[in-house]
Amino acid sequence: MSRGKEIIEALRTLADRNYTFMHICGTHEASIARSGLRSVLPDNLTIVMGPGCPVCITPQGEIDAALELAEKDCILATYGDLLRVPGSEGSLESCGGEVRVVQGVHKAVEIAEKTDREVVFLSVGFETTAPTVAATILQSPPENFSILSLHRLVPQAMQWLLEQGEAQLDGFMLPGHVCAVMGYEEYEKFPVPQVVAGFEPEDILLGLLMLVNQVREGRAEVENAYPRVVCREGNVRAKELMYEVFEPCDAEWRGFPVIPQSGLRLKEQFSAYDARKKFDVEIRHVDTHSACICDQVLRGVARPTDCKLFGTACTPRKPVGACMVSHEGACKIWYLYQRNP
């Protein structure tokens, strides 16, 4: 990590006041925690995780909707991350219904092709994942296949965080793989320093250095520290397919209120594949009463270790909050790598 050392030296020289940056990606957090990167940063340079884990920001009401589909005897196909997320009564893992873990949506279609039962894919994820579902829907999967669309869009959450100001941020490290698909044009409207960064520790350090430099020089633009994967326009075909099949809708995020136009729902002409309509499932807002502070962790105003439950009542084996469940959740990552930071 010799290059990294040089960047750390530069950061030590340049970080002349307190800087706080937010990243919005569980893969960034995993890389930061695994490499112990926070321990080598200057004390006045802080990087916090925002709402960058699609499983964690899926609110309880949507988990309850999935459990209702299991009760209605649908086979549920999902990414493994969702299995232990607590709903109001139990989780997918404990619900007794037929739940199958799949690599992606195409494998859920393969299950539907081999059965007469209804198969519902729990379609969670940001803009990296939504185009794969769109491409699959456009191939006219069998009639017994449908999706529960739980997709979310990253820029809308950033907009909310900026308007709200609670986390007092100097800038954002943008998620490299969301930007691989979407590009970064739509982030240019935000009047705040932003850098698209890759996932190696050196990539993240480079991103931090570029952010510090923007702040010092009074610039607020989008810079790309990950050009080996990301270009400004992104993957044009993937974006076109996504908006051919989905349209934005208002959506609640765990830890946030309803954020306007931050979700994706299937367009009218694809209603036959919409599990909400097909099985008449309603998504309700659920108030949670617990000492769990996942909501604050997701907004970047608390650290996992600030939670009284962290590592005691709440562990990956028996998670209380969603952030302890997913491999991309801040609490689970901290539990794995730095229980005593």
């Binding site: 990296t128 794969t132 698909v181 993957n235």
Partner: peptide, 23 residues
């Protein structure tokens, strides 16, 4: 670049080299 069983973007050797240049 492969994500959930789908190629989501094309990579090129040149782009990989560009990052080195940026460093």
């Amino acid at each position: 670049l492969v994500h959930v069983g789908f190629a989501i973007q094309k990579l090129s050797r040149e782009e990989a080299l560009e990052t080195r240049e940026l460093f």
